[in-house]
């Protein structure tokens, strides 16, 4: 049992756990058009999904290593390269499948939480 002082840290950890799986879905959904790291972060933040830099950027590389994203380097200005990411065909397939899973989970949870409120 955690104390009242420890509760905020626990809540933060649980929230992080809850969001972690959803981040992949969120990132894949925003990369039909190519984006570089910072522009993607801003785009997600504009839709109320603020992902810490230290989480988002390594996630992009992991998704690329898994074949769900593709990347290309481009010179944004003189001697300043930028890496652009875009969803891959395999990523699109995963996005569709994960999207369905998410809808099903969301419906189930809505039902469960409704019962909880009664």
């Amino acid at each position: 049992m955690v104390t009242q002082e420890e509760y905020p840290a626990l809540l933060e950890a649980l929230t992080g756990e809850l969001r972690r799986g959803a981040l992949v879905l969120a990132v894949l959904s925003q990369l039909h058009e190519r984006q570089y790291g910072y522009s993607l972060k801003q785009q997600l933040a504009a839709q109320a999904l603020d992902i810490p830099e230290g989480t988002l950027y390594p996630l992009l590389r992991r998704l690329e290593a898994q074949g769900l994203l593709e990347s290309e380097w481009e010179l944004a200005s003189e001697a300043r390269p930028r890496r652009y990411y875009r969803i891959s065909p395999q990523g699109r397939e995963a996005l569709a499948d994960l999207g369905q899973e998410w809808q099903a989970l969301s419906r189930a949870l809505r039902g469960l939480l409704k019962e909880e409120k009664k």
């Binding site: 570089y36 790291g37 910072y38 944004a76 300043r80 390269p81 930028r82 890496r83």
Partner: peptide, 16 residues
């Protein structure tokens, strides 16, 4: 590769 990307990301954040 990570260092190059990290530098680019940090520079974007700093510029912003």
């Amino acid at each position: 590769d990570v260092q190059l990307e990290l530098r680019s990301l940090l520079q974007d954040e700093l510029s912003a």
